[in-house]
Nucleic acid binder design. Structure first.
Length: 653
DNA sequence: CGGATCCCGGTTTTT
DNA sequence: CCGGGATCCG
């Protein structure tokens, strides 16, 4: 995506930046080394973003055309933020820098050159739920039947096929390593995998992984495209390199083949996306991929107090792999991090509430505090207590708004319009009509065959006698395809049709309709239907705050994954108990346990001044009933001088 | 077609 | 114990 920096109107003068004065030595080197490959190993809080921002500014000052800069980041938002900061730094409009995730950048190229890789009519992007639906459909089509538990479920299948792509290994190798229990089904799985590929192509659909695979194919197999893009993007910067996989590294290598001007920035001890095929060792491979790479380390931490860093260093020192750096800070003074042991989960929640209220009284705004959890559901109880206490909060990560049924329903109407071959969305629409089930869907499929047009679909709908509502659906779609309708117009039309259906379907339908109105507001920002749909899949709203205007001051509640790259004055880490963090599931495998440890490290290093780690001594699990929880091994053996055990009285409510 | 019932399993993180 | 999935029956 092109990100815009068009916020300057001024006659004000571009500022002269005193680079040596505003940066430390290592940062200065990283900013001013613009030719050839550079690897920056940037510890947590070491000014990594600052370095990228100054480098952007420096390049422009040196006369580099902003259009020739490509900034690959973990989210589109962080690319946008960096650009905005560079603009303020320069006090000068910056022009069109291309920035965003690997997925969104590949999407952009594939939209332009789709015909080269066999998608001449464009494509819709499938989300995780769509992948599951399609796989389920194929499994049924093949008629594979197995006793429960002996064949992967649709979500597991999606995981397996995605892992094969992102880890660049064969199905067989993956099954042996991660799913030995399904090894006996490898032939059936391979069949489904093959059918899945074919089905996506004939339906003009791509999943997330296809964006990377086809993007790489585009560069690898089409010399003219590779050359054109490489010559356009003379300066490539990759943020969070420790969380890229082989596929992404290869994309960078291909893209930079004419100039090798690549800067990769990352931290091996913060690699937390191995489930997506990332391997922290990849960062060490960068010099092999780009011979002659200059390596620069940023080790001074500007974020946290020394006591917080001491704890972070102690946690990561327990890792089996020895990482490359040791952080230090000049902020020697500060409170010792505390380890809170509470009786129950609810007491943990009330503890957080009272601590947050205390800090607020000390003058720290809610916006400077965060509660971090390993998994989205770990904060459910806390969310109830926060609401009860009247503390505004916004939750990031975990459950995805766009994946809830009512959103997917509404989008299905728009999706068939954008891509009539999208069978999955057709099925969804049909199943929404009362009286339509699997049988009708099957008849629809047979009738349509490979001749997929809106006209053909309308004819089928109108030829059906039974549910009269099928005709109404046909009329809706027919009128939607009239030329010149805006995205909002299409969506409000859909909403009107959908409302009665939702009413009969969902008990909480008023709430759901409210969500859809927020979605309507988002739709109003788009001119093209396809980019609306694909943006929503590619960069789904991270929280309710991205939909409705957030309260002016709010506490952040977030998964650790979604907190990557962010920082707050005060941070609380919840559920630091064996079985939860690390979870039971990761306790048998060394590599997974190591990743959990890095995750704890990431959580701790988000804090500037105050850090509280909490765990409930008694937990309740569906599986085991009441359990006694030991503190997480990552914090259990830390000396009291680094992590202070702390008891507080928490009043009953 | 869709509601009722039974059985099994049980890890999360995101583009 | 809850939810997803498969199966059965009206």
């Amino acid at each position: 995506m092109t990100i815009s920096s068009n916020i300057f109107n001024t006659e004000s003068h571009p500022r002269r930046i005193d680079y040596p004065k505003e940066l430390n030595e290592a940062q200065y080197q990283a900013v001013t080394t613009v030719a050839g490959p550079v690897l920056v190993i940037a510890g947590a809080g070491s000014g990594k973003t600052r370095t990228l921002v100054y480098r952007l500014a420096y390049l422009v000052e040196q006369g580099v055309d902003p259009e020739s800069i490509l900034l690959l980041t973990f989210t589109r938002k962080s690319a946008q933020e960096m650009l905005t900061r560079a603009v303020h730094l320069l006090n000068q409009h910056l022009g069109a820098v291309t920035g965003g995730t690997f997925h969104s950048v590949c999407y952009q190229w594939l939209r332009q050159y789709g015909d080269r890789v066999g998608y001449p009519h464009g494509f819709n992007i499938m989300d995780r739920g769509d992948q599951g639906d399609l796989l389920q459909m194929l499994k049924e089509r093949f008629g594979f039947k197995h006793p429960a538990g002996s064949f992967p479920k649709k979500d597991t299948m999606a995981d397996i096929f995605s892992a094969v792509v992102n880890k660049s290994i064969t199905l067989e190798a993956l099954l042996i390593r991660d799913y030995p229990q399904f090894l006996a089904q490898r032939d059936e799985l391979a069949k489904i995998q093959m059918a899945y590929w074919q089905e996506k192509r004939s339906n003009h659909l791509m999943d997330y992984d296809d964006l990377l695979v086809e993007g790489r194919r585009l560069l690898a197999e089409h010399e003219d495209v590779r050359r054109r893009l490489s010559e356009r993007f003379q300066y490539v910067m990759v943020d969070e390199y420790q969380d890229t996989n082989l596929l992404q590294a290869d994309l960078v290598r291909l893209l930079a083949f004419t100039h090798h001007n690549v800067m990769a920035v990352g931290d091996d001890s913060q690699s937390i996306y191995s489930f997506r095929g990332a391997d922290f060792r990849n960062i060490m491979d960068f010099p092999r991929l780009f011979p002659g790479a200059r390596i620069i380390k940023l080790e001074e931490n500007y974020r946290s107090t020394q006591p917080i860093l001491d704890l972070a260093n102690a946690v990561i020192a327990g890792a089996r792999e020895k990482y490359t750096k040791c952080l230090f800070s000049r902020k020697a003074e500060g409170d010792r991090p505390r380890l809170f042991r509470t009786a129950s989960e609810n007491e943990q929640s009330r503890l957080v509430v009272s601590q947050v209220e205390d800090l607020k009284r000390q003058g720290i705004p809610l916006k400077e505090m965060a509660v971090l959890v390993r998994a989205g559901y770990h904060s459910f109880d806390l969310e109830i207590e926060l609401t009860r206490a009247g503390i505004h909060f916004v939750k990031f990560g975990g459950f995805k708004f766009v994946e809830s049924a009512h959103i997917k329903d509404i989008l299905a109407y728009l999706r068939v319009l954008a891509n009539p071959r999208d069978t999955l969305s057709w099925h969804r629409l049909l199943l929404l009509v009362p009286g339509v089930g699997r049988q009708s869907c099957a008849r629809f499929d047979t009738q349509m065959g490979s001749n997929f047009t809106i006209e053909a679909a309308l004819n089928w709908l109108r030829s059906q006698k039974r549910p009269a509502q099928l005709k109404a659906l046909a009329d809706l779609i027919d009128s939607m395809q009239a030329p010149g309708k805006t995205v909002v117009a299409l969506m409000s039309q859909t909403l009107e049709f959908y409302e009665p259906l939702a009413q009969g379907r969902y008990d909480d339908y008023p709430k759901r309709m409210k969500d859809l109105e927020h979605l309507l507001a988002i739709a109003s920002r788009y001119r093209s239907l396809r980019s609306f749909l694909n943006d929503l899949t590619l960069e789904p709203p991270a929280s309710a705050a991205d939909l409705a205007p957030p309260p002016q001051d709010y506490l952040t509640v977030s998964t650790i994954h979604s907190a990557k790259g962010l920082e707050w004055d005060a941070v609380f880490v919840l559920w630091a108990a064996e079985g939860r963090f690390p979870g039971f599931y990761s306790q048998e495998r060394e590599d997974e346990l190591e990743e959990e440890r890095r995750l704890m490290y990431v959580a701790i290093t988000r804090a500037r001044k105050y850090l509280g780690v909490a765990y409930p001594a008694i937990g309740y699990s569906r599986q085991f009933g009441m359990t006694y929880n030991a503190p997480s091994r990552f914090v259990a053996d830390i000396p009291r001088s680094l992590l202070e055990p702390w008891r507080v009285e928490v009043s009953e409510t």
